[in-house]
C-alpha cells in the first residue's frame, strides 16, 4: 500500500508545490491542508506515515502541531520545514519530538530523502516494538 503523507502549510502555493514534488514518481499518497486546526481531525480519519509541516503558521504553529500529532500517534514522524534563518527554533522542534527539520531554501531531493529516512525509521520502530513483544 502506498505510504500516506500529510503536508501542512498555511501558504497554498508552497502546499501545492510540495504536493507536486512529493507525488512525482514516488508512489506516495499525499494529503494536504492549509489549516493546521484540521490536522487532528485528519489524523483520526486516516492513518498517515509521515507529517510534513511548516513551522511558522498563524493560529497553530509547527511547535503546537508536534504536541497535537504526538497525542494522537506518538510514533508518527514529523518533519518540520523552517523559514530561512530560524535554526534555533528548528532545533527546539527536534528536541520536542520532531523527527527532523529542513531549512528553506532546500533542494527538492532533500525533502524526498528526509521523508524516505523517516519512513524507514518508522518501519524500524514498528519492527522493534514487534521484537520486544516476542
Amino acid at each position: 500500500m502506498a505510504e500516506q503523507i500529510l503536508v501542512v502549510d498555511d501558504e497554498p502555493n508552497m502546499l501545492r508545490l510540495l504536493r507536486t514534488i512529493l507525488m512525482d514518481k514516488t508512489g506516495y499518497e499525499v494529503s494536504t491542508t492549509n489549516n493546521p486546526l484540521e490536522v487532528s481531525k485528519l489524523l483520526q480519519e486516516k492513518s498517515f506515515d509521515v507529517v510534513v509541516t511548516d513551522l511558522k503558521m498563524p493560529l497553530v504553529d509547527g511547535m503546537d502541531l508536534i504536541d497535537i500529532v504526538k497525542k494522537i500517534d506518538e510514533k508518527l514522524p514529523i518533519i518540520i520545514i523552517t523559514a530561512y534563518g530560524t535554526l534555533e527554533t528548528a532545533e527546539e522542534a527536534v528536541q520536542k519530538g520532531a523527527y527532523d527539520f529542513i531549512t528553506k531554501p532546500f533542494r527538492k531531493e532533500t525533502i524526498l530523502i528526509t521523508i524516505k529516512r523517516a519512513l524507514e525509521w518508522k518501519r524500524m520502530q514498528k519492527e522493534l516494538a514487534a521484537l520486544k513483544k516476542q
Binding site: 508552497m14 523559514a83 534563518g85 528553506k104 531554501p105 532546500f106
Partner: peptide, 12 residues
C-alpha cells in the same frame, strides 16, 4: 527550480 525557499531567504 530545484530549490524551495521563502521570503525571509530573499530578504536576507
Amino acid at each position: 527550480g530545484d530549490y524551495l525557499f521563502d521570503r525571509a531567504y530573499l530578504q536576507a
